[in-house]
């Protein structure tokens, strides 16, 4: 029984916004299955009373003053844009409202 099915991999690709071809799915699904079996080892460490660590260092309260700093110019902001119009980023039609 694989730890992840081809269908699940296809679902992940949709969530991750990657248009995988069938051939790629065939290739990637068994590899992911292997990797998931490897990483699944973490569950062997019984660690109910262990707190999780999300940051390497125990820093807290790093904040900045509420002051303005210079912005990019609109030309700089748009310099990498694949398409621009009216000083805005031009993007293909959006299907759904957020």
């Amino acid at each position: 029984m694989p730890s992840i099915t081809r269908e699940e991999v296809a679902h992940l690709a949709r969530l991750a916004r990657i248009e995988l071809s069938d051939a790629e799915l065939d290739h990637l699904a068994p590899q992911l299955d292997q990797i998931i079996a490897l990483v699944g080892q973490v569950s062997q460490v019984a660690a109910d009373d262990i707190p999780p660590t999300s940051h390497a260092l125990p820093l807290t309260n790093v904040m900045r003053e509420d002051v303005n700093v210079p912005c990019l110019t609109p030309e700089q902001a748009l310099s990498g844009a694949p398409a621009a119009e009216e000083q805005r980023f031009r993007v293909p039609r959006i299907l759904e409202e957020d």
Partner: peptide, 24 residues
């Protein structure tokens, strides 16, 4: 659509290892 263009771009722009890790 924007969504489709995102999907196509990420498919064409990322290599295998990047795709593997993103999906993982």
């Amino acid at each position: 659509s924007a969504e489709k263009v995102m999907n196509l771009t990420r498919e064409a722009g990322f290599g295998d290892e990047v795709k593997r890790r993103i999906m993982l």
